[in-house]
Amino acid sequence: MSEMLKITDLKVNYGMIQAIKGISFYVNEGEIVALIGANGAGKTTTLHTITGLVPAKSGSIEFEGKELTKIPAHKIVSMGMSHVPEGRRIFQELTVYDNLLMGAFTRKDKNELRDSIKTVYKHFPRLEERKNQIAGTLSGGEQQMLAMGRALMSKPRILLLDEPSMGLSPLYVSEIFHIIEEISKMGTTVLLVEQNAKKALSIANRAYVLETGNIALEGDAKELMQNDSVKKAYLGE
């Protein structure tokens, strides 16, 4: 296994506030890596910085050997990295189908595109049923599925997921996590940000615990589940 994504001493500022205070972590090819932590710990900021929506102050983000910190956000997706942002941020006024097409914005081959849409429909049959529906009318769980399907349309080698379980019913949460495992099995590397630490640790290979802009703990996901302070702070035991 090789390091696919490698973050070294990353610092990010929001105005005067230092949101990320020098974190380092890596994701190996084929892994599911979870980034857990409380609200405001810097999880979302970390993902936003990786895909260029927020500029890094210093440090490096290396993806498959290429430095990302100086690359504009709109060029990241064609490099093989797809980001499902927090709150899903699907295009509410477009149809489900047009949302999926937006996900493949940088791709040109029409035949490959058709295959990708088929693959997405296989993961999320409900999207096919609702393909002509305006996306804003979908339920929260369906919108999450659409956001993930849209991200898969670019055929990413790594998928960054930000709080996929947020605001969903327990049934949907299980379904979404099941699909994340499926996506991972089909060969896509996953970096997963979650507040639902229990669920995240249950499917992840490794995990990092983020606390106010620093990495407090890291290790094998199964071991972290047994860690006392993790249990107390994040698993509610």
């Binding site: 895909t51 260029g52 709109h74 942002p85 295009f91 477009l94 914005f105």
Partner: peptide, 18 residues
Amino acid sequence: RAMLAVSEDKGAAQLMGV
């Protein structure tokens, strides 16, 4: 479609490669 996407959510549009 890219124009519609940008009008709705610039950040998400960028993530799509727009």
